[in-house]
Amino acid sequence: MRQIIYRSVTTADSRRAADDIPAILGEAAPRNGVDGITGLLYTEQDHFLQAIEGPEESMRDLVDRLASDGRHRDMRILVDRAVDEREFGDWAMIHRDRRESVDSFDDRMRVLLAGVSRQVADYFRALAPA
């Protein structure tokens, strides 16, 4: 099993970026489920941080699709490693709506990151709003 963490920047206008996320997930979730890919997509304003994991061949195909996806740019792979077992059993997306308090958002992040390796959690915590 392979795990990749990458970050990128949306190409959408920052006001529209939040509206694009449900469409992105609507396209990705069914295919990722069939391909055995799970992970966590974190968005903050115009930045994406995503951890994905799954079988080697599925991951190779997904990374190729992500690299050519025009909805984001400046894709930078931070971690690419073999893992013995999944750290993310379910596909999830977390995004802080302007109406949500920082404390509430932090609570949701804490739940989603429970049980993942410290290295993975640190990447997500580094982008969380102060």
Rank of each mutant, 00 (worst) to 15 (best):
H47P: 01
H47N: 08
E56H: 08
A23P: 01
D35G: 01
G39E: 02
A51S: 15
L40T: 02
N32Y: 13
T43C: 11
E44A: 09
G33H: 10
F48Q: 02
I37K: 08
D19K: 06
G26A: 13
F48T: 07
Y42M: 01
T43A: 10
L25T: 04
Q50G: 09
Y42L: 14
A23W: 00
L49M: 15
E44H: 13
D20F: 06
G33S: 11
E57Q: 14
L49W: 09
D20L: 15
E53I: 05
E53L: 14
N32H: 10
P22L: 06
P22F: 06
D20Q: 13
E27C: 07
D20H: 05
A29P: 01
Y42R: 00
G54W: 01
L41S: 02
G54Y: 03
G54R: 01
I37L: 15
E44M: 05
G26M: 11
V34C: 07
N32D: 08
A29L: 13
V34I: 15
I24L: 14
E27T: 15
A28T: 09
P22G: 03
D46K: 07
T38D: 11
P30T: 06
V34H: 12
G33I: 08
A29V: 14
I52D: 03
I24V: 15
A28H: 03
Y42T: 02
G39D: 06
A29H: 08
Y42G: 00
I24R: 02
L25I: 13
Q45W: 04
E53G: 02
D35W: 00
Y42I: 00
I21T: 05
V34R: 13
P30W: 08
Y42H: 04
H47I: 05
I52R: 03
N32K: 10
R31A: 10
I21R: 03
I24K: 04
H47R: 15
L40V: 02
F48M: 11
E53F: 03
P55T: 07
T38C: 12
G33N: 14
G33L: 07
R31S: 08
G54T: 11
